[in-house]
């Protein structure tokens, strides 16, 4: 299972980096989203993978999974969700102000 998770994180990161380096704002936003998915998974598995064990103390438990990464990843998800919402609105505003969806706002006569 570790190898599979590592592969998933790797593929998500690679896709995220590739898309974040594109020239249009929409792929860049998608790339940032994929990167945040990758890092959320990564944070989550940093508590080591465990199946069917509780994070909170209980008398019947045979073992425990680390609850801290779960709390961290919740925080990270909330933050990355807010950031994604912000960057989408900003991309729309840039599209309206710059007249195209290139990240550098190309081909505007005043900039030359």
């Amino acid at each position: 299972m570790e190898a599979l998770i590592a592969l998933v994180i790797g593929v998500l990161t690679a896709g995220g980096v590739f898309l974040a380096l594109r020239g249009q704002t929409f792929p860049v936003v998608l790339g940032l989203t994929l990167l945040s998915y990758a890092v959320n998974l990564f944070l989550f598995v940093m508590g080591r993978l465990a199946i069917g064990v509780p994070p909170v103390i209980s008398a019947a438990a045979e073992g425990y999974t680390d609850p801290l990464p779960q709390a961290l990843v919740l925080t990270a998800i909330v933050i990355s969700f807010g950031m994604t919402a912000f960057v989408i609105v900003l991309a729309l505003k840039a599209r309206a102000e710059l007249g195209n969806d290139h990240v550098d706002g190309l081909a505007h006569e005043e900039d030359r």
Partner: peptide, 12 residues
Amino acid sequence: RLRVKAGLHYVV
């Protein structure tokens, strides 16, 4: 316009 363009780079 220029502020939004610079802001986009900064945010990303």
